[in-house]
Each structure stands twice: as structure tokens, then as C-alpha cells.
Design a protein around this nucleic acid. Structure first.
Lengths: 254, 254
DNA sequence: CGTTGACTTGAGTCTATTCAAATCCTGTGG
DNA sequence: CCACAGGATTTGAATAGACTCAAGTCAACG
């Protein structure tokens, strides 16, 4: 099922990208070097499965480009997106636990390039290297942070606010005033991520436009007044814009 | 605000309880001994605040008895329960991160006894002791697991199913057949934890009773046929009963 | 230029919420 | 042991938000 496009034991093209990731940066050099030796480069076409829930967690992945949807599916076929991971993020961290099974399904939401490494190696690295364990701890904490934020949003914000919150996070939280950006992936995927149906997303977006004067055309987004947006969104949130704790791109944090 | 009821540098009465906790068990003996030296026993009456979001995370807590509600509040006063922690659980783990602020409010949901220790000590322990870091890693993973499950439930299950799921977890996942148990705290608190209003809880419970023949009188719960309950609940979940990954009491796991 | 997939819109339904009122419970003081 | 205040829970009626299903629009692509 998985297609290994390159089996070299060096990753000249991507090594630099890998070093940008939070977790990898934090590894002591000898550990990361030895890990690199065992890495494989993996390219997944859109919709290809990466792993399934309850599979033995033999592999651990870093995302170099694209998007990976980590999700769960009920017997009835409904699906819940648990996290949507992008460049610099890692997948399969439950490989570390004793049971060693994945706890969710994962699939490429877009054409995605990853670095794949044997889980036991990283487990071993964590066991042997204190710095690795600390790096993982920090990575886990990051993820938990983001997840907590999502939980809060689901419980406290309505559909238009959740979309607005998503846009705010896309803005990156630096400057006030005008912003212009592109949605990183399709609207229906954003909808699922935010815990709503595609139709609801579409309607909620209309409301958001009227309430905050944001403009959305295709994937292009214009935010004429980020304060207006923040006012609308943050009324239903425990944080105020800029909510630094909560960033979409893992490379921005820490 | 916090009332220290006992300032001894030994905890004869509670030391045993502390050793039962997952995290503490995993600490190397010299670390846990030195931590114990700096612990204080803390008793909180119901509704007393433990810490607030954005406070500097100076303290780290173990729960000996009672329940701690970790929650967030919007400007408008709505509140979302992030986690509801009981005996053996720990509170304030974000004390480890650089920023070092709590990311949520926390308060005693019932009369609660905790062990309180300076965060910097545990941070130091994690930095110096590899085993401590690994123990924390495992503790973090546990929490993330539970949170993921909650996220899934919110997105995929309706109110009666979420209540049913809660009851299933209370049953502990061991034997089939009949079960009899008591709710650990009030219904409105369970409602908030499950992301619904008290009134909704009440009505949803009626539906659950009719659909699965569970009986609830006050805090007493009777489950005549756990399979019927599981069938009703697990249709909307990625797991099937018994869902071992997801336990309420941290002492049961691992 | 037609096809496909992504998105939008409409109508009707269902679920959960709000607000208000009624009941039930529990701990307390007498 | 009993009555009672105050909180917790239940119930009712009306409303709002999100969902389903179905149809329509739009745009990219072969």
C-alpha cells in the first residue's frame, strides 16, 4: 500500500526541511544523525491511507509537505478529524507506548511527502537519550495544547465563530490591520476539521462575511479589519487575539 | 486563596496514596523521595479555585481524593470543561513548558485533597532524570488519549450516546452482564463534562433509559445488560466495548 | 465542450438550547 | 425526628442552530 519512492539512506533534498521541524531540532545531533540513516522518503498521493487505527505502530512519520488527516471512523461510516497535520508535524507518536498501536486512522489529505522511520528506533532513542525524551515531551505538549483549543472551540463556539477562529489562526497572530491569505486546503476538509458538515460551513461562512466584512473567493481570503474579526470570534473563546498559544504551523511555535 | 492545612515535610497519611498514582510510580525512587520532601498537603473545599488560566504555573498537583475540574471560560461567562480529574491524576503539567503558564482554569468540583509541589522541582527532576521525563511522557500520552476520545465523542455522538459512553467507562470494561454503580459526582457536572447543558442531560438520559433499559435513580445506576448499552453507544464510536484505551480512572491504566 | 468534483442554496427535520416553572433532595437547625 | 431553605434535577414550550437530502451553480480539466 505504501509506496517508497526513494530508498536511499540519505535524504539530501529533504534533510534541511527535516531539521526545521520542532521535534527534530530538539534532538541531540548524534541521535538525529543516526535516525536519518534509517529514514525513508515517502510520497503519498491524495487520499492514500498512511495507517489504520489498531494497526501495530511500526512507523513514525515527519511531514515534509502536504497535509495528513488523522481521523476516526464509526461503524456507521461517520468520520471525525482528530488533527490535520502539515509541514513540520509528526504522525504516529503513539508508537512510543507499550501497546504500540495507532489510535486513529491517518491518510493524506493532499499529495504529501513524508519521512518515514522505524518506530522502534525512535523509541530506543527516547529510552537512551534524555534529550530525545524531553524533545518528545515538548512535542506532545504542543499537540495537546492544540487539541485542548479545539475542544474548547467545539464546546463554546458556533459554526461562524469556529470558522473565524480558523481564519485568525491562519493570519498568524502578528500584525493588526489588513490581511490577505489563501486557504491551505479545500473548504469541505476545513469543515470536517472544524466539526461541521460542508453545507453548514458554506452557510456559516456567509454569516461570518456579513458580520466581519471578511471576503472569501475560492481559496482567497481577505481580512480588511482583523480587529472586527477578532471581536466576533473571541467573544466565544477563553483567549483573545492574538492567541499565541494556538498556532497552526508547528514551526512557528516555541 | 489556597489554604495549606498541613505544612509538614512528610506526608505519612497520604504517601501511600501518592505512590499509587501512575506518574509517581514511574519516578525513580530518589527523585520521588526528594519530591516528597517538598510536598505540601492541600485541602480545597468545593468550588475553590486551584489556579487560573495565564497564571504563572508555579505549582504542580497530585489529586489524592475528590475531583478537580479543569475548564476555560469565555468573556461571556460560558464555560467548557477540558478535563475532570480524580484520584491519582495530576494537574498543572504545563508548568514544564518554557512559558510556564497554566492553560486553563482549575477548581475543586468537590471537596478535594491534593499534594502540592513546586513546579520548578519537577521541572528540574525531568531535566536531570531521564526516567522522570519518560514517566511524564507516558502521563502526557494518557491524557492526550483521553482527550482524543472526548473529541471524537463530541463530533460523532449525540447526547444520549455520550451519556451511555460515560456509563460504559464507569463500568470499567471488565465483565459483561449486569452492573451496578454510583455516579462519582453530580449530574450537572457530568453534563458540562460531556459538553451539554443540564436540561439536555436530563432529557437525553430519559432516551437512553428507554433505549437500553439502564436505570438511574439519584446517583445509583443499574445496567441490566451491558451489551445492549454498548450496542447503542458504540454505533457512534470508533471503538467497541470494552474500549480499553479509554479509562476514567488513571490508576486502572497501564 | 462536456464531465467531474467542489461548493452553494433551498426546504424541511431534528437536536440541543433557552427561559421558566415545578419537583426532588440534602444538609441544618430546632 | 421533623420542617425548611437552598441547591440540584426535571419538565414544558418555544427557539435556534446544525443536519439531511436534493437540486443547482461554478470552475478546472481532459
Amino acid at each position: 500500500m505504501l509506496k517508497v519512492v526513494q530508498d536511499t539512506y540519505r535524504l539530501p533534498d529533504y534533510e534541511i526541511a527535516l531539521w526545521q521541524t520542532n521535534l527534530f531540532k530538539a534532538l541531540p545531533q548524534d541521535v538525529s544523525n543516526s535516525l536519518l540513516t534509517s529514514c525513508k522518503l515517502l510520497e503519498l498521493p491524495k487520499n492514500e491511507t498512511l495507517h489504520l487505527q489498531h494497526d501495530t505502530a511500526d512507523w513514525f512519520y515527519f511531514i515534509l509537505s502536504g497535509w495528513v488527516k488523522v481521523y476516526r471512523e464509526t461503524q456507521e461510516g461517520d468520520e471525525a478529524v482528530i488533527e490535520l497535520l502539515g509541514t513540520g508535524d509528526f504522525v504516529g507518536e503513539f508508537a512510543f507506548l507499550e501497546g504500540g498501536c495507532y489510535t486513529s486512522d491517518a491518510a493524506a489529505a493532499e499529495k504529501t511527502t513524508l519521512v518515514k522511520m522505524p518506530a522502534f528506533l525512535l523509541k530506543e532513542a527516547a529510552t537512551k537519550s534524555h534529550a530525545t525524551a524531553l524533545a518528545l515531551l515538548s512535542g506532545f505538549a504542543d499537540k495537546r495544547q492544540r487539541q485542548t483549543q479545539e475542544l474548547e472551540g467545539l464546546k463554546l463556539q458556533n459554526a461562524p465563530q469556529r470558522i473565524g477562529c480558523y481564519l485568525l489562526r491562519q493570519c498568524g497572530g502578528k500584525e493588526m490591520g489588513k490581511h490577505r491569505l489563501n486557504l491551505p486546503y479545500g473548504k469541505s476538509l476545513i469543515a470536517t476539521q472544524l466539526g461541521m458538515k460542508g453545507e453548514t460551513f458554506s452557510r456559516a461562512l456567509q454569516k461570518l462575511k456579513k458580520a466581519t466584512h471578511v471576503g472569501v473567493t475560492g481559496r482567497k481570503v481577505q481580512v480588511p479589519d482583523i480587529c472586527a474579526l477578532a471581536e466576533f470570534v473571541c467573544a466565544g473563546c477563553s483567549n483573545e487575539y492574538p492567541c499565541k498559544d494556538v498556532l497552526l504551523d508547528p514551526r512557528q511555535s516555541a
